[in-house]
Design a protein around this nucleic acid. Structure first.
Length: 240
DNA sequence: TCATTAAATTGTT
DNA sequence: AACAATTTAATGA
């Protein structure tokens, strides 16, 4: 996006506060950190705006500083499949950045968000020089693999309540999204886009989960009271 | 700071 | 999809 959209003009260096939200910064040595910070840029993405599109060449490795993004892909039939949401603290695109391929999915802002970008060349330089960075990326890849496998499970269940619960739980993954508190700022409409259900159905599911005591619904967001309960929502297979 | 108004979000049909 | 009710954000005195 930084190179082929109006976002290119709006990017700027990060503030100290924004840098402190980047989970892998603490793993770098001083000179590595300097180089990373020197290259890092952030930009605003308006609601609905694409951060990157399928097929475009990889220029940056992305991280969410603020807001909420949606990772999805379009199949041959033109249908859209949502993989996951990316909350603040989440970094993505390392798989494609590693291979310097084109993006394999779309990243779209669900609401006004702030996105950081590290140039692929710097990404590779860090891989070549920092063990801590390698550890982070490896951990990240492994954790995302687990998340995607879980996402396949979620897609195959047709109980909306369970889908909402498990999708919510995946947003609270402590490895992929460290620093997530108990509260998640997400509207029911945004969650609906993420899970692929109607807002009404999401509202109903959230009410059920709140009644179970797993979450607490708040205006413009929700509070997780029992993450384990969200994760362990059981599949209820229909008869036949 | 408070009151008023507009906008966003939720709950319900 | 539409509507009413509720909550927050913005405005200006």
């Amino acid at each position: 996006m930084f190179t082929d959209s109006p976002l290119h003009q709006r990017r700027r260096p990060l503030t100290e506060r924004e840098i402190s939200t980047i989970p892998w910064m603490a793993l770098l040595a001083e000179h590595e950190r300097e180089r990373a910070i020197d290259d890092l840029r952030v930009t605003d993405a308006a609601a609905g705006e694409y951060v990157c599109r399928m097929g475009r060449p990889v220029t940056y490795w992305f991280g969410v500083v603020d807001g909420l993004l949606k990772m999805s892909s379009d199949n041959a039939q033109g249908q859209t499949m949502t993989f996951t949401g990316v909350p603040p603290g989440g970094w993505f695109g390392e798989g494609t950045a590693l291979k310097r391929e084109a993006y394999r999915y779309n990243i779209q802002a669900l609401r006004k968000s702030m996105v950081a970008g590290l140039h692929v060349d710097t990404f590779h330089w860090l891989l070549d020089h920092s063990i801590g960075f390698n550890r982070f990326v490896m951990n990240q890849l492994n954790e995302r693999l687990g998340q995607f496998i879980a996402a396949r499970e979620i897609d195959r269940m047709n109980s909306p309540d369970v889908r909402v619960a498990r999708s919510l739980a995946s947003l609270f993954n402590p490895v992929l999204y460290p620093g997530m508190g108990a509260v998640l700022r997400i509207t029911q409409q945004e969650l609906a886009y993420l899970v692929g259900l109607s807002r009404q159905r999401v509202n109903e599911a959230l009410t059920t989960l709140a009644a179970q005591g797993s979450i607490q619904i708040e205006y413009g967001g929700l509070r997780v009271l029992d993450l384990a309960a969200l994760r362990s929502q059981v599949l209820i297979k229909p008869a036949g």
